[in-house]
Computed example of a mutant assay.
Amino acid sequence: MGPRQRFAALRQPWQSSHALLAIPLALIVVITGVDLLVPADVHLGPLLVIAPAITASFAGPRLTGLIGALAVVAQAFIGWHFGALFTRNVLVQILALTVLSSLTVFFCVVRERRRKELAQVRSVAEAAQHVLLWPLPEEIGPLRIACLYLAAEDEAQIGGDLYAATRVDGGARLMIGDVRGKGLDAIGEAALLLGAFREAAHKHTTLPELAASLEQSVARYLEDFEPEEEAGERFVTALLMEIPDEDPITRMTSCGHPPPLLLSSGDAVTVPLHPTPPLGVGRTGQADYTVDVFSFEAGDTLLLYTDGVIEARGPDGRFYPLTERAAQWTGHSPETLLHHIRRDLLAHGGGRLGDDAALIAVRRTSAAHPSPAPRKDHPHRRVLHRSETEPSSH
């Protein structure tokens, strides 16, 4: 942001607050003028407290204090005009107006302090988000990638949902996951799994080996940090994906995670997976993990998501129909696709979600080796092969 943009950003709230300042000033003038015109036994001076009270709603303590001082001066002027400035009644009115104005300024000071603390918390949360949940690269080989994160907790930037992507020899590996729970309580496990994936993705040849390594990391973490009252209740769902550069396929291993959508030519199809239990429930052998292989050709888009998306409820209690809505935007880029889903999802949920939600859109932008022509009359026509226990070859 350049100097002009920063100056404009500071100038805009300054101009708006000073424009609104005309309202309490006009109230002081009107109340004072009317009080001078009405009969002497009618006292409108106490209404001057409205001016600093209104100012506190849009201005800081300095402007609020200034308006409060002007209101006290106006009250004193009314008493002087009627020759009753030093009477007990007028002095009590001036004192009461001074005390109320001072209290209003005090609450402004407290509000400004909390606002600064909140801004600092937001800054720390954003820094933590960039450290733990790195933005995914826009391109990895022939893939174009976009991601979206929506935190359920107010003022939170991160929570229990996670995603990561990395370049490996001859392709790319991606992960999307969901820690049981939401918000700040789940950040520790999310950070652990992200770090374990970034390290293990380059060490293990197959997805079952990678899944087994992540299972061991989660198990060690839960052994050290899982509360006794939640023993056996903490786990992480994860979807591991491997996309070769040259072969028009994708390999997936699901650890209890919702299956992705395959978007192609105006159609959205749920990819049929054979999930194993989530990470953290005691599965440590790589032979237990399933590898599913599907076609993934140029122009296709894979939409990965967490259950916070499909379990988002509308005012009528209906879940968000992701498959139906995503089918409307299959021809868009990953960035535009997630933009439409974000707007539509928040509109469906009334502006907020009940759980953290994360999405990744992955599009293959260049053609690889030719693949067998899919059958167009089959609902899962893009499936090339499905393997129950055989590890994938990288």
Rank of each mutant, 00 (worst) to 15 (best):
R220D: 11
I187A: 09
T301E: 06
H18K: 04
D41Y: 12
R167H: 09
F319T: 08
D292R: 05
L97Y: 02
E155D: 15
P3M: 11
R88W: 13
T290Y: 00
G65N: 01
S217Y: 02
H339V: 07
S217T: 10
R113N: 11
A156V: 03
L27A: 14
P372Y: 05
T270L: 15
D316N: 13
P39Y: 03
L21C: 09
P391H: 03
P321Y: 08
Y305G: 05
L337P: 05
R114P: 02
L359K: 01
H339M: 08
H348D: 02
L304G: 01
E139N: 08
A327P: 11
L85K: 05
L239C: 07
I187C: 02
R88P: 05
S254H: 09
A367R: 13
F82A: 11
F86Y: 09
A128I: 12
G280Q: 04
T323G: 09
Y221K: 02
S264L: 13
G256V: 10
G354A: 14
S213E: 14
I28A: 04
G65L: 04
L91S: 06
T104A: 01
S213G: 04
V281G: 00
A190P: 09
L21K: 04
R364L: 05
L136V: 12
Q157F: 14
S265L: 12
P258Q: 11
L273W: 12
L162G: 05
A19L: 15
E335K: 08
V124S: 02
H81R: 05
D377P: 07
E155T: 05
S366H: 10
D377E: 12
E139V: 15
S123V: 03
A357D: 08
E117S: 03
Q216M: 10
A152N: 08
T253N: 03
P260F: 13
A373F: 10
E229D: 15
E189F: 00
E228Y: 01
I31H: 00
I360N: 00
E226C: 15
Q75N: 08
I176M: 04
H81T: 12
H130A: 10
Y305N: 00
D161N: 05
A59T: 12
L262W: 12
E246G: 02
V34Y: 01
R144E: 09
T237L: 09
R364C: 04
V179C: 11
P61I: 10
V179L: 11
G159N: 07
E226V: 13
V49G: 08
F7W: 10
Q75V: 10
K203W: 00
P3W: 14
L10S: 03
G188D: 05
I158P: 07
A196R: 08
R4T: 13
L95Q: 00
A327L: 12
K203A: 14
L192I: 13
L48E: 04
S217I: 03
A56D: 03
S123F: 01
T55K: 00
D377W: 15
S264H: 12
E390R: 12
V291A: 01
W80H: 05
R313E: 08
E209A: 11
S123T: 12
V38A: 02
